[in-house]
């Protein structure tokens, strides 16, 4: 089964089944992954589904667009591979993608 792996700051990880066409924020919320708020419901307007993409995977994702970049620029703890999960659409090619969930959403 294709999965997306969410790693928590505590060290635990959760694998959720990958549904093609869903965005990763919805996938996380549907599977009750802790630490992903998604307050704007996936509109790229709140920054509360911040995740850090595993370095090995970062280049394989379509880059953030200007709108996402703008929300990320307001994050307090932005990392080089920070993304908003709601802006990444699951495809079969992402099977095994590992995302770090930050300790806090802001």
């Amino acid at each position: 089964m294709a999965i997306i792996r969410f790693a928590q700051h505590t060290g635990t990880t959760r694998d959720v089944p990958l549904t093609e066409g869903s965005n990763l924020m919805d996938l996380a919320r549907a599977n009750a992954v802790p630490g992903i708020d998604g307050d704007c419901g996936g509109s790229c307007a709140c920054g509360t589904c911040h995740v850090i993409v595993d370095a090995a995977w970062a280049a394989r994702l379509a880059p953030a667009n200007a709108e996402e970049e703008r929300m990320l620029s307001m994050a307090v703890d932005r990392q080089p591979h920070s993304r908003l999960a709601c802006q990444i659409i699951a495809t079969a090619a992402l099977d095994g993608l590992r995302l770090q969930v930050p300790e806090h959403q802001f």
Binding site: D39, G41, M71, H104, F106
Partner: peptide, 19 residues
């Protein structure tokens, strides 16, 4: 969907003190 309320606004001006 209570968290999806818009009392904090959305976008770059979203309430900084929300947390």
């Amino acid at each position: 969907d209570a968290r999806q309320h818009m009392a904090f606004g959305f976008g770059v001006h979203r309430c900084m003190g929300n947390r």
